[in-house]
Nucleic acid binder design. Sequence first.
DNA 1: GAGCAGACCATTGGATCCAATAACAACAAG
DNA 2: CTTGTTGTTATTGGATCCAATGGTCTGCTC
Lengths: 242, 242
Amino acid sequence: MSGPGQRVLALLRQMIAEGSLAAGERIAEIPTAERLGVSRMPVRMAFRVLEQEGLLIRHGARGYAVRQLGEEELAGAVEVRGVLEGLAARQAAERGVSAEVRAVLLECLERGDRLFEKGYLCEEDLASYHDLNLRFHQTLVEASGNPAIAAALARNDHLPFASVSALVVDREHLEREYRRFNFAHLQHHAAVDAVLAGQGARAEGIMREHANATLRYARLFGTEEGDSVGRTVIQRGSQKPG
Amino acid sequence: MSGPGQRVLALLRQMIAEGSLAAGERIAEIPTAERLGVSRMPVRMAFRVLEQEGLLIRHGARGYAVRQLGEEELAGAVEVRGVLEGLAARQAAERGVSAEVRAVLLECLERGDRLFEKGYLCEEDLASYHDLNLRFHQTLVEASGNPAIAAALARNDHLPFASVSALVVDREHLEREYRRFNFAHLQHHAAVDAVLAGQGARAEGIMREHANATLRYARLFGTEEGDSVGRTVIQRGSQKPG
DNA sequence: GAGCAGACCATTGGATCCAATAACAACAAG
DNA sequence: CTTGTTGTTATTGGATCCAATGGTCTGCTC
């Protein structure tokens, strides 16, 4: 575990996510292998995985290309995440959650409450919120008892900006971000309320709308088009899907 | 294209789907390679892809195991397909469909009408219905304009029995299957009606329920538990996701 | 007799080599 | 001048070899 193969895979994912690899440009095995200082073999393996994840697409009959995803493709991925997490919430509500899951969800809510009750956000609050947000979503998906949801979500989670684990934050306007994340956190509250009450349809609707919190709310709460100054992505290490 | 690598991948998928490989049992590279008469390399590649598709899972620290999916996992996958195809139908209805898509959908409906109007099903009707069913679903997903849906569906489509391309038919009771497929076809009618009328929510609801036609209706329409005699799977060649 | 340690074997991952194929370019012919 | 054909090169896929790691079995010691 964590041999050169995994390292190459993680490196390529990161390079694609942060744009070091020009989108749409062709990418070959040998230059990539030399650039990363490994043999062609782990690169070959990584290319297959990355193709399955949708980050690379075949470029003609020879080689791969970094997939360039436009605005509406991103919106589509967010929409997909919405229906999947909505399904997870509904099934969790319908089947009922265990005491452990209930405890984790309530703890996430409480930790978020403590974050937001002081009325502003500082730098390390962003990291904390990111962590609890991730934990909340993962717990809900697990609580659905439907592993197919996690499997389907795994694809989206590899697309940059479309996953829960990628939070686009505007560090220049932390008061705006406070409102945005606070709203998202209130949606968490509503979702937990619905799930614990066994209200499947309500839980589904809330989580479906909540998917927009990642991306669309960023515009909704004031960050206009082209206002990319100071926008940062908190991207955490790839949590394993299993 | 279509070299030994693709052949190995297709063979392994088929062997997993039809149960030639015992579920849950460990599967190693070397015996598999010898059994298929190829080197270890294409097997290694295929294992990675199959792991990404969810057909294989890691068996401890060494090797892979064929994933055994129980009844409720299958039901979960069907549910996932429901929400995804529901989303596709809704987005197709909301954005409107092109003339070409409209023509294809109507042609699928008409061909189905001709199949069912004679009041019974014969053997080659099953293949015809399978083809038009597949075409219908693919067209609808494409019409959504959301490639993330197809990407998310690709995972489910590899799980045996959960995809549109796997129809479980009971050849012993073709009159029952007539009622079942006819019902599914009427759902197609309703879905197209809703999509063409721009009724997104209605289209979504119909397609969501329609996902159950693959599996759950088989029991609903009379095939009881354990009544597996004469049940066959029409599984067609792996249509490429892109 | 049981537990621990060491050694051997099985199996996987990486590297290098070889073959096959596709693309590009150059040259010749119409 | 344009187009077709052929040759060369670049790149990918497959095979074989080598190293590293984990598991198991056996023997020794307490």
